[in-house]
Design a protein around this nucleic acid. Structure first.
Length: 571
RNA sequence: UGGGGUGUAGCCAAGCGGUAAGGCACUGGGUUUUGGUCUCGGGAUCCCAGGUUCGAAUCCUGGCACCCCAGCCA
């Protein structure tokens, strides 16, 4: 049996956020005769990030909790100038990886272009929409400001037949981009800017990733989204807070067109994480300026980046469960995310030894030609995970930071004359320190106690420190990439400066002389390990090969010695 | 002195008139062949001010702070 509690990743906490409460109440009072249906509606104009994961978990999660289990994956592709198929594919990959399946409910807003066009015609016929011939600047001017109401367009009272004709000609390509737009006729005096005769169709003479050359007019988000929801039979249209002001328009369109269904829009706060940025625009900027290696750079908060880094989807789902869903703008600490991945990996990961920054150790009383295979459990608290063997010999390497000539208080590791345990092996005592001409330590001469094989002394004597190690002649050289937070400011760019100025120059440290234990010879791409005492690592799926292993550090272990060290320095 | 939102511990977050859950972080102890894990313990009177009530984080009034909105982006 595992020592830790069972509900780390398999059982998720029962969620009862305000949205689920609303839905539960409605189900109870049978408001929706149909079942609960949701949708995740990304625009394919970038890669998904951890913020999208929150929405995915919410939408697919809620659907899964109700009869029918329906959640659509809908690409909101109404702007061909920003969208492309590469993004579509990456989004599908990421949603699946996160553990969700849309079944046969894959849709594009562009699937509805014909219906949307008909709805626009209907609006015109109801005298609720008109073609406006004002220029972009004129529309902007007449819209008014936050304080002052707008002015009616001189084209607002065109006849229905003229509007029908003009709209038809817009569709036929008779006008240039920007020359005409279709606007909903609502109220230019509304205090809500979205209601001041919003544009619902614009001319864009460019091919669309899905519909090709068929259209040169494209519907705007506000017109498209509510109708797409209605067409699909979405019952609850969950979106982020900035769309709150759009809800009256969402409702106006559906009410005015008397759609058979009227989904309910509910807004929640988007995720914000400190020490990173979660905005497709900013992430794209990092990619385009080569400040990271790509959308899947392991330092990126994108799902593809986190996946490559070694994050598990279960940890991300757990994270989304823990942060909750509210209407409060908050900033979550990176530590909360790290806690989730540590917790997940703690239970699942095989323990191995890897010396990141090696220091040579010669065991003087161990014969040169001897090699012992020592048993090492794969997991200290889960015998069912089995064991593996690690070779021990006369020349070893330990971590440089595990030896100090002049150890401070509470330093339990190796020092001249001190005895420590080599994990799963023997107690060793440092007898001499060898330095080069510059005075740098290059080697330690130690002795071992043959009686302590396996790591405990028959006489009952204790040692405070246990070090990880590798055997020189058996170890495998590997590259290790130590990742740290991408930014060194909790809220990059918040003070009005360029967010890129807050980039952490030390967000990646590449170690090329790392030595890993022999059992890692066949480490497969994407597999995660715990390097004992150092952290969780993942075989890089892109750059690693059997000949040249590359490991990414997913996250460090909690390090209480680092805290003591810090406190020592302060004192 | 336009409209829409939000304010519970350092960070999240329950609470829905009956006397402040939980998690993360921090911190103290125990266990431990990872200074890991596990485990036990420690912190708030709920933005402020009035009011209603036997009783308010929860209701009312008035403030204050912060966020969002003036793309032919989503």
């Amino acid at each position: 049996m595992k020592a830790q509690s069972a509900n780390t990743t398999t059982e998720s906490t029962i969620q009862n956020d305000f949205i689920r409460q609303i839905i539960a109440e409605e189900v109870k009072t049978n408001k929706n005769e149909e079942q609960v249906v949701t949708r995740f509606p990304p625009e394919p104009n970038g890669y998904l990030h951890i913020g999208h994961a929150k929405s995915i978990c919410l939408n697919f999660g809620i659907a899964a909790e109700h009869e029918g289990r329906q959640c659509y994956l809908r690409f909101d592709d109404t702007n061909p100038s920003k969208e492309n198929l590469e993004y579509v594919e990456s989004i599908k990959t990421d949603v699946h990886w996160l553990g969700y399946d849309w079944g046969d409910r894959l849709r594009h807003s562009s699937d509805y272009f014909d219906q949307l066009y008909d709805y626009a015609i209907a609006l015109i016929k109801m005298n609720k929409a008109y073609v406006c011939s004002l220029t972009t600047e004129q529309i902007k001017e007449s819209r008014g400001t936050l304080r002052d109401q707008g002015k009616n367009s001189p084209y607002r009272d065109r006849s229905i037949s003229e509007n029908l004709d003009l709209f038809e000609r817009m569709k036929a390509g008779e006008f240039a981009d920007g020359e005409q737009v279709l606007r909903a006729k609502i109220d230019m005096a509304s205090p809500n800017l979205n209601m001041r005769d919003p544009i619902i169709y614009r001319i864009k003479k460019m091919p669309h990733q899905m519909t090709g050359e068929k259209w040169c007019i494209y519907p705007m988000y506000d017109f498209t989204h509510c109708l797409s929801d209605a067409i699909e039979g979405i019952t609850h249209s969950l979106c982020t807070l900035e769309f709150e002001d759009h809800r009256p328009l969402y409702d106006w369109i559906l009410d005015t067109l008397k759609t058979p269904r009227h989904p309910q829009q509910i807004e929640f706060a988007r995720l914000s994480l400190n020490y990173t940025v979660l905005s497709k625009r900013k992430l794209q900027e990092l990619v385009e300026n080569n400040l990271v290696s790509g959308w899947d750079d392991p330092r990126m908060p994108t799902l593809s980046g986190m996946r490559r880094r070694g994050y598990t989807s279960s940890a991300i789902r757990d994270f989304c469960d823990r942060i909750g869903v509210t209407r409060k703008n908050t900033q979550i600490e990176m530590g909360a995310l790290e806690n989730c991945i540590r917790k997940d990996l703690e239970a699942k990961t095989v323990r191995v030894m890897a010396v990141l920054k090696p220091l040579r150790v010669v065991i003087e009383n161990y014969s040169e030609d001897q090699v012992e295979q020592l048993d090492a459990p794969n997991h200290p608290d889960d015998a069912s995970m089995g064991t593996h063997q690690v070779p021990f010999s006369r020349v070893l390497y330990i971590e440089q930071e595990d030896f100090l000539e002049a150890p401070p208080k509470k330093f339990f590791r190796l020092a001249p004359g001190r005895e420590v345990r080599l994990r799963y092996a023997y107690f060793i005592t440092c007898q001499a320190v060898i330095k080069d001409e510059k005075g740098d330590i290059v080697e330690l001469r130690c002795t071992y106690d043959p009686e302590t094989r396996g790591g405990s002394a028959p006489d009952g004597r204790k040692v405070k420190g246990t070090l990880h190690w590798v055997s020189e002649s058996h170890a495998i050289k590997a590259e290790v990439r130590l990742y740290d937070r991408l930014f060194n400011h909790p809220n990059p760019g918040a003070d009005g400066s360029d967010f890129k100025a807050a980039l952490n120059p030390n967000s990646m440290e590449v170690l090329s002389d790392t030595l890993v234990e022999a059992s890692l010879a066949n480490a497969q791409a994407g597999v995660r390990y715990q390097f004992e005492r150092k952290g969780y690592f993942c075989v890089d799926p892109v750059d690693s090969s059997k000949e040249a292993l590359v490991f990414n550090r997913i996250v460090t272990l909690r390090d209480s010695w680092a805290k003591i060290e810090k406190a020592n320095k302060r004192a």
